[in-house]
Simulated scan of single mutants.
Amino acid sequence: MDFTDKRLSYDKGELDQNNIPVSPFELLKTWMNQALEQKVKEPYAMSLATCGANMKPSVRIVLLREITDTGIVFYTNYESAKGQDIDENPNAEALFFWNELERQVRVSGSIAKIEAEKSSAYFQKRPHDSQVGAWVSEPQSAEVSSRDVMEARFEALKTKYPENAQVPTPEFWGGYEITIETIEFWQGRANRMHDRVVYTQIDDTSWSTKRLLP
Rank of each mutant, 00 (worst) to 15 (best):
K56V: 15
A121L: 06
R7A: 08
V197N: 14
L48P: 03
T159S: 09
G174E: 02
V149W: 07
T159W: 00
H128Q: 04
R192E: 06
D16L: 07
A156F: 05
Q187K: 01
A121N: 06
G13K: 01
M150F: 09
D87E: 10
P90T: 01
F97W: 12
R147W: 12
W186Q: 06
L212Y: 12
Y44C: 08
Q84A: 06
P90E: 05
D16Q: 08
P170I: 02
R192M: 05
E177T: 05
D195K: 10
C51I: 11
R103V: 00
F172D: 04
S47T: 13
D148V: 04
N19Y: 10
M1G: 15
N18V: 00
K82H: 08
E117T: 09
D5P: 01
E14G: 10
T159M: 06
L15S: 10
D203G: 05
E14S: 15
K125C: 14
L27R: 11
P170G: 12
T169L: 09
S9Y: 07
S206N: 15
N19R: 10
A156M: 05
S146E: 01
V105K: 02
K160C: 03
I86F: 08
V59L: 12
A92T: 04
P57N: 11
Q140K: 10
L27Y: 09
F96P: 00
Y161M: 04
M32L: 15
W31H: 05
I178R: 09
T200Q: 15
R147C: 10
E79W: 04
T4L: 11
I183P: 05
R153T: 09
D2T: 04
T4G: 03
P170L: 08
A92I: 01
R147Y: 15
N191Q: 07
P162S: 12
N191G: 09
W207D: 06
E117P: 02
D203N: 15
W207G: 05
D11C: 01
E42D: 15
T4P: 04
K39F: 09
K118S: 14
P170A: 11
N89Y: 08
W173M: 03
V73K: 07
Q84G: 00
E66F: 13
E181K: 13
E138N: 15
F74E: 03
W31S: 07
I67T: 10
G133W: 05
M193S: 13
D85T: 00
Y176I: 05
H128E: 07
E88T: 04
N191C: 03
E143D: 10
F185L: 11
G175E: 10
F25C: 01
A53K: 15
M55V: 03
F154T: 02
A116S: 08
F154I: 00
R211S: 12
E100P: 01
A35M: 00
K82E: 08
F97V: 06
T179E: 13
Q124V: 02
I183V: 09
V62T: 12
D87K: 12
P170K: 11
A165P: 02
P43Y: 01
Q201I: 09
D195V: 09
I183D: 07
E115T: 00
K56A: 14
Y199R: 03
L157I: 06
T205C: 04
E181P: 00
I114Y: 11
W207V: 02
V59G: 14
A165V: 07
L36A: 07
G133A: 14
